[in-house]
């Protein structure tokens, strides 16, 4: 089985964002806006942290 680490992280961020946005907001419009913002934030932070860790060997 081949699974991309990045795609798994994106899927994780997507699912968590959907649940958090649904919990936090009551209208569909607010849920979509919050969910998108949260999803973008998760992916951007994870991508940034990934690059920050790049110079350090395991």
């Amino acid at each position: 089985m081949t699974a991309s680490h990045f795609l798994i992280m994106v899927l994780f961020a997507l699912l968590v964002s959907i649940v958090f946005a649904t919990l936090m907001r009551d209208t569909a419009r607010e849920q979509v806006r919050t969910g998108l913002a949260m999803f973008g934030g998760f992916v951007a932070v994870a991508y940034g942290l990934g690059w920050l860790m790049y110079p350090f060997p395991l």
Binding site: F12, V19, L23
Partner: peptide
């Protein structure tokens, strides 16, 4: 030994924890 083992654990535990939040809601 699977490459995705830790990812799998994270998904399984997070699904449960999210449901805990849903129960509280």
């Amino acid at each position: 030994i699977a490459v995705t083992y830790e990812y799998g654990n994270t998904f399984l535990m997070t699904a449960g924890l999210l449901n805990a939040l849903v129960i509280l809601d």
